[in-house]
């Protein structure tokens, strides 16, 4: 009797979580689509690395995080920022170079931060923030805090020394850090087979004595569950975990456009992956399992659209930083 009650509760809880993940994924997607729509106005004057296609990974991982857990990210960071609870008005204002932006316009799309959400930083030097996440984990350990630290990075970061050196150290000290590799097969226009031998990335982490799992990055439920287990493992004091999620970037490496015309990947390949669209996949699951109705999903889209329009107005109406602010903050007072 009690068991039955409990299992029902679990299902209800899961349903709420799944809808929450779906909402975040839609928010990420619509945010990126808004950039696509508005980029040609030439008012967002900075590089943008859109994460359309990757949404399940930030949403599924971050749904497991508490506010006190910290996240570091790379150049393709919009999804991580949103999923960790970063303020989207301030992110869009940042992309517009406004003083209300999350880095006061100093950083642009590649340097996001929202300390109130413990999204500690994104930077575009490949592999640059991976050791920082381990450092944040070391600090937690030194300070007897229970939070975990997450590093999001791409498959190319596996080629950088920083990743290997950090895995070694994090394993040695059993640091509470989660490594999340978003393997979208490409580094700019170069396929992974041109850059790495045919070994599994997770084997690299295992070689350092780190528990590692590989999962379908376009399946939000799988991402969520895998990350859930990983974080339990980390929070129980067992040291770091490494997750590799397979996914695909739908747009060009940097910028708002499609890029099939460049010829480095085929139309067929892109089509194959489009069929595995993570949002459609989760949406269908929600419908099939009667967790949500069509109307409910439409309402999510609708509400998200409003939220994004508000961010656009905020960003566009905000002021630019003033000339005399340029030399502020070179040094900390």
């Amino acid at each position: 009797m009690e068991d039955h009650y409990n299992s029902k509760l679990v299902i209800k809880l899961n349903e709420i979580i799944l809808i929450q993940i779906y909402k975040i994924m839609v928010l990420i997607r619509k945010f990126e689509e808004k950039i696509i729509e508005l980029y040609s106005e030439q008012e967002m004057r900075c590089p943008v690395h859109l994460c359309i296609g990757h949404e399940a990974i930030p949403a599924g991982v971050c749904e497991n995080l508490n506010k006190g857990d910290v996240v570091f990210s790379n150049h393709r960071s919009h999804g991580h920022y949103i999923a960790k609870g970063g303020d989207i008005k301030r992110m869009l204002a940042e992309i517009y170079g406004k003083v209300t932006g999350c880095s006061k316009g100093r950083g642009g799309s590649m340097h996001l931060i929202d300390l109130s959400a413990n999204f500690l930083a994104s930077t575009p030097i490949v592999g640059g923030t991976i050791p920082l996440a381990a450092g944040a984990a070391l600090a937690s350990k030194m300070q007897n805090k229970s939070n975990v630290s997450v590093a999001f990075f791409g498959d190319a970061a596996v080629e950088e020394g920083t990743l290997h050196e950090t895995l070694n150290f994090a394993s040695l000290h059993k640091l509470p850090v989660l490594f999340v590799c978003e393997n979208n097969l490409y580094s700019t226009q170069t396929h992974i087979n041109e850059r790495q031998p045919a070994r599994e990335i997770v084997k690299v982490a295992e070689g350092h004595g780190i528990k590692a799992f590989r999962g379908d990055g376009n399946n939000a439920i799988e991402v969520y569950e895998t990350a859930k287990n990983a974080i339990e493992h980390i929070k129980s004091g067992n040291g770091p975990v490494f997750l590799e999620f397979l996914t695909y970037r739908f747009r060009e490496h940097c910028g708002p456009n499609e890029d099939v015309s460049l010829g480095y990947r085929t139309k067929e390949e892109i089509l194959e992956w489009t069929k595995k669209d993570p949002i459609k996949k989760l949406g269908n699951k929600l419908l099939d399992d009667k967790i949500a109705t069509n109307e409910e999903l439409e309402k999510i889209e609708h509400d998200t659209g409003i939220q994004i329009e508000q961010a656009v107005s905020f960003a566009k109406e905000s002021q630019f930083p003033k000339k005399d602010s340029m030399d502020k903050n070179v040094y900390s007072e």
Binding site: C46, G97, G105, R106, F320, P321, M326, D327, V330
Partner: peptide, 12 residues
Amino acid sequence: LPDIPSPSTPAL
């Protein structure tokens, strides 16, 4: 250049 890291925003 001044002794300042380069800002992103075109306003600066």
